[in-house]
Write a protein that binds this DNA or RNA. Structure first.
Length: 472
RNA sequence: UCCCCGAUAGCUCAACCGGUAGAGCGCCGGACUGUUAAUCCGUAGGUUCUUGGUUCGAAUCCAAGUCGGGGAGCCA
């Protein structure tokens, strides 16, 4: 019966005979006939120290095979360690090398690697301290998110991944088709050269009978269930075919989108804040070793920042107030600040990192720079939008109170150049039993970024998809 | 997509005004040690991203391309 390393370190009482399996991180060998092996099986950040000596059969030959990256099965007695550095250690009685790892070829060294290098080794990087920790923290975050909503009676509703509604215009969609692209390409080439006008594809011949793509957001579908079964959330993959090359964007990322009926913007803000703080507290309690590692090796202010975020109320102010602060700051910005202009990254960063040094929720943005579905304020100039900004990341949550008034929504669509007919079902929600409702979207990977302090979002997901990169 | 920067040993990097390649780490060998990313000594290891150009001579200069990184935009 296999015992996990995490249990050896925390639960099993010394004196017990255990059977552990895992991968060798390092081996410190003495020619006197004994060796120390650091074994990791992913169950915890810490390794289990194995003490192997020449009482093992064929020790000399065996220990040569125990190289960084090799997999082992070891049985022996768990004992209190006489040396500093670990409380317990395993004295091997049997040791079997399950799979060797040629040290001359194995890509991972005992010492650190650049993250750029490790991204090219996505099949091996979870065996490193950083990515093992990342996997455990990401898991804890996901669990905390579900727990938060489940504890409050939210239903977990799956939004479609393939969609034919090009709603919201939020970024370019990846197209989904079963049409023969090679054949279309030939046809397109000949038609353009002969007729001189763009070639039109007949989507009635495509799988869904119309143009389809991967979802960029489940929000509009989310409103359907919010306006029927009540509080609900999605937690699923989202796809953006934007050519974004930054440390904060992925082409495939996971998004959490709660949507609540009878919520006005203030309720929405309160939920978002409580949610973020609750998730952080939960992970702080559950993954102390992993977060300590990130604090020691990745971002020295991490734990202080997380305590600060989870322990203080978020600053709440309107877009108009934010613009005033920026104008009065005396700070010189690359992009000018002015009412009606969207806030740039540098402005958001100034507010959350320099001015307040805390998460900030900005609300009531000018209607011209926000989406059609956000509820119009009575001033005729602003809408009930909110962005949650956190130090180091910037925008982590975007949300709003939705426009529930049928006539206002239609005129807003027209104002935004959209055809109301394309949104017939969305409009019917306002025609039949409409209610005030609100929701927001949280980027999972940006949350992982915030909680681990990792610089690049490509290191916050097991297999990142970015422009020109979708290996593994 | 735009602006910058980069690509040299397995990894991280160096190589001055253009003169034929160097260190640390890792690996391997040895020494030493209840060791902790151990330490000390030694060996091996290179088609300098690709293509073209300039030159007696290119890692180095020029052009194009590919890939990577940072910033911006878009956003989560």
């Amino acid at each position: 019966m296999r015992t996990k390393v995490a249990d050896c370190l925390k639960k099993v009482t010394p004196g017990t005979i255990v059977d552990v399996r895992g991968w060798v991180r390092t081996r410190r060998e003495s020619k006197q006939g004994f060796a120390f092996i650091e074994l990791n099986d992913g169950s915890s950040f810490a390794n289990l120290q194995i003490v192997a000596d020449k009482s093992l059969p064929d020790y000399e030959e065996l220990i040569k095979l125990v190289q960084t990256g090799a997999s082992l099965a070891v049985t022996g007695e768990l004992k209190d360690s006489p040396a500093q550095g670990q409380k317990v250690e395993l004295h091997a009685q049997t040791l079997k090398v399950l799979g060797q790892a040629d040290a001359a070829k194995y890509p991972l060294q005992k010492k650190g690697h650049s993250f750029e290098f490790l991204r090219e080794k996505a099949h091996l990087r979870p065996r490193t301290n950083t990515f093992g920790a990342m996997a455990r923290v990401r898991n804890a975050i996901c669990d905390a998110i579900h727990r938060y909503f489940q504890d409050r009676g939210f239903l977990y509703i799956h939004a479609p991944i393939i969609t034919t509604s090009d709603c919201e215009g939020a970024g370019h969609m990846f197209q989904v088709t079963t049409l023969d692209l090679a054949k279309l390409g030939q046809l397109q080439g000949s038609r353009i050269s002969e007729a001189g006008k763009p070639f039109e594809i007949d989507y009635t011949k495509d799988f869904f009978g119309k143009k389809a793509g991967l979802t960029v957001s489940g929000q509009l579908e989310g409103e359907i269930f919010a306006c029927s079964v009540g509080d609900r959330y999605t937690f699923g993959p989202t796809f953006r075919a934007e050519n974004s090359n930054t440390t904060r964007h992925l082409a495939e990322f996971w998004m959490i989108e709660p949507e609540m009926p009878f919520y006005e913007l203030e309720d929405n803000m309160a939920l978002a804040e409580d949610f973020v703080r609750s998730v952080i507290k939960n992970v702080l309690a559950r993954c102390p070793d992993d977060l300590q590692f990130f604090n020691d090796r990745i971002e020295p202010t991490l734990l202080a920042t997380l305590e600060n975020i989870s322990g203080h109320d978020f600053i709440k102010l309107t877009y108009t107030e934010a613009v005033e602060i920026l104008l009065k700051s005396g700070q010189s910005f690359e992009y000018p600040v002015g009412w009606g202009k969207d806030l740039q990254s540098e402005h958001e960063r100034f507010l959350t990192e320099k001015h307040f040094k805390q998460p900030v929720i900005l609300t009531d943005y000018p209607r011209e720079i926000k989406s059609f579905y956000m509820r119009a304020n009575d001033d005729g100039k602003t809408v009930r939008a909110m962005d949650v900004l956190v130090p180091g990341i910037g925008e982590i949550i975007g949300g709003s109170q939705r426009e529930e008034r049928h006539d206002v929504l239609i005129s807003r669509m027209q104002e935004c150049g959209l055809n109301p007919a394309d949104y017939w079902w969305y409009l019917e929600l306002r025609e039949y039993g409409t209610v005030p409702h609100s929701g927001f979207g949280l980027g999972l990977e940006r949350t992982v970024q915030m909680i681990t302090g990792m610089q690049n979002i490509r290191d916050c997901i097991p297999f990142p998809r970015t422009p020109k990169s979708a290996d593994f």
